[in-house]
Design a binder for these strands. Structure first.
Lengths: 235, 235
DNA sequence: CCCCTATTGTGGTCAGACCATGAGGAGGTG
DNA sequence: CACCTCCTCATGGTCTGACCACAATAGGGG
């Protein structure tokens, strides 16, 4: 008796093999669902289960209709899948929030050390500067501010050059976003908090540009830990 | 026109909500697929797509048959989902292998610093010692040795107390396992390599127990970078 | 009392049908 | 000839119904 793999796994394995072998790559279109049915000898529902997994994991996007934009297309947007996975694991009590925060912290510290140790010519901090500038707008709502805050940290992570770190960090942040937004409204004096955050952000970037890894690491450490320790009011 | 969410997302959101609200937790059984169909007013195929996603992400396991062990049961085995996600992203060229290795390296270094800075009473290195002992067996095949190697590193990560770090590290390792096993056979003198690895492993644990974070970090750094730089022969 | 078997409920799979969508072509119209 | 409109068609999205394999359990037969 040969162990018959689940039908959807056949589809998943086939697509993964095509990806590994280079027969499929970013931008390419997968065969249509009905073609895969014919090629692999499985039912369409099994094909769809596999495609659904790939979609949620951020490997493909699907679109109805006709033409070159329709069908399932390989994209590689790691953050989406990472965020979904972490969020669900948190929901299922697989990951304590404290561990999520601690991991984000250690990744950010690494990013700071790395950036501050990189020669100026090899690091691109333009996006981070841009975001920082946008954040100086006093008229921002707290939600808008937080979105820019996320973009700022992500810009730094991307500047480190490590896509895995950047995606993981972003996923970690997104996974607890709901939790953060929930506590946001309970900060007594938001304007004061925003002012402190602005100062910290500038300080971090400054430390990086002064090529001081230890200072940059310390500042980002204080920044994150202080924020999560900021007193909240209410239930 | 109210934006009608995809049917499978309704199911996914519902289950996530149940998890967040605590109505579902590890060990609990999900309603049967046919019950979910009735409760949510969607087709069974849509329910199955959502469950498939949860399964691949390591949130549930499914079993056929009857009784308390059958059906979909919430487990939280983060590593499985993490490994699958990373492996697929690597396959889809979303993550360069170099970034995977670099990330694993920075996580391991953090684990070492953390362990070496933790009071002896609060860290449990028993499992790591056990694994190390098993690895001293000279009769091990290279595959067996590598499995123990993985267990050793995982044991240390778990001892750090951060589940997210442990799962991510394990996922990173598993995602490139095939690649590693592929190059394994091309190491000219495996016995010599194994001997070096044994020595390094003991050195790492020794540094931790001497409460020397810097030494532990340096040793794990050298250990991993040296291994990935070990010359391979052949095509 | 024990063992065997039929029942029942579960996930796993397939086949077929229908819908909404959107590109691209066919054909008409100025 | 240019433009616009409508039709066609392939796509994913969904639902329904059916059947299978499996495993626990209830119930009958020894």
């Amino acid at each position: 008796m040969t162990e018959q793999p689940r039908a959807w796994r056949i589809v998943l394995d086939r697509i993964e093999a095509d990806l590994v072998a280079g027969r499929l790559g970013p931008g390419d279109r997968l065969p249509s669902e009905r073609d895969l049915v014919a090629q692999l000898g499985v039912g369409r529902s099994s094909v769809r289960e596999a495609l659904r997994v790939l979609e949620v994991m951020g490997l493909i996007r699907t679109a109805t209709g006709s033409g070159p934009n329709a069908g399932a297309i390989v994209i590689s947007s790691p953050t989406g899948g990472m965020a979904a996975l972490l969020r669900l694991q948190v929901a299922a009590k697989g990951f304590p929030i404290a561990d999520i925060v601690a991991t984000r912290l250690l990744l950010e510290e690494w990013v700071m050390r790395t950036l501050a140790s990189t020669p100026d010519a090899e690091r691109d901090l333009a996006l981070a500067h841009e975001t920082l500038l946008a954040m100086d707008d006093q008229a921002l709502t707290s939600t808008e501010f937080l979105a820019l805050d996320a973009a700022y940290h992500l810009a730094l992570a991307k500047a480190s050059g490590n896509q895995v770190v950047a995606s993981t960090m972003e996923g970690l942040r997104t996974s607890i976003e709901e939790y953060v937004l929930d506590t946001l409204t309970r900060i007594p004096d938001w304007d004061a908090e925003a002012a402190v955050l602005r100062g910290e952000h500038h300080g971090i970037l400054e430390a990086i540009e002064k090529d001081d890894p230890a200072l940059a690491e310390r500042r980002v450490h204080d920044h994150i830990t202080r924020y999560y320790l900021t007193p909240r009011v209410g239930a």
